[in-house]
């Protein structure tokens, strides 16, 4: 009986003590600790944009520098889900890039295409806001008109 009785009061004491401890911590946060929320997107602070929030290596939308692209199609092959479509056509002597489309609605931002690019033509931008009304807008056509491919020869000699 005494054991039971002792446990009865011990339970009450434990309950009060642990509850008080927990409430002390929440009180500390209530009174003292400041909020860490970032008020995205409209109150980021002066002159800050959404793209400043992310780090240097952030993997956002893909970006193409057509002047560097040598049309080697490695990124297209590396892509696990085939969201890049490149067409290279020969017009006369020159090779032209006629299409460079990236389907950002399918892209899973794995970075394999950026990794294999020998010239650094395809890179990640910091843009991450992809909300739009029509999913077709996410299929980004990087080239408006055919662009002649960069010559890889200079690079090859360096190597």
């Amino acid at each position: 009986m005494t054991n039971e009785g002792v446990r009865y009061f011990k339970n009450i004491r434990e309950a009060i003590l642990t509850t008080a401890k927990g409430m002390k911590i929440t009180l500390k946060y209530w009174v003292k600790e400041p909020a860490i929320t970032i008020e995205y997107p409209d109150r980021l602070g002066k002159g800050r944009t959404a793209e400043d929030l992310v780090s240097e290596r952030y993997r956002g939308f893909l970006k193409l520098d057509p002047s560097k692209c040598i049309g080697c199609l490695q990124c297209m092959r590396a892509c696990p889900i085939d969201c890049i479509l490149i067409k290279v056509e020969k017009i006369g002597e020159e090779r032209y890039l006629t299409r460079f489309d990236v389907d950002q609605s399918k892209c899973m931002y794995c970075g394999l295409c950026v990794e294999v690019c020998p010239t650094g033509a395809i890179t990640f931008s910091k843009r991450f806001e992809g909300a739009c009304y029509d999913i077709g807008e996410l299929c980004i056509k990087h080239l408006q008109e055919p662009v002649s491919v960069a010559r890889p020869k200079a690079k090859k000699k360096e190597e």
Partner: peptide, 27 residues
């Protein structure tokens, strides 16, 4: 998440390890 983002550029699906190494050096 911020640490991993600085390390490999993604917050959730890191895809950091590669066969034969890792994708980025430490920032």
């Amino acid at each position: 998440n911020d640490l991993m983002e600085a390390l490999c550029g993604a917050r959730l699906t890191h895809n950091y390890v590669r066969i034969g190494g890792v994708s980025h050096d430490e920032p």
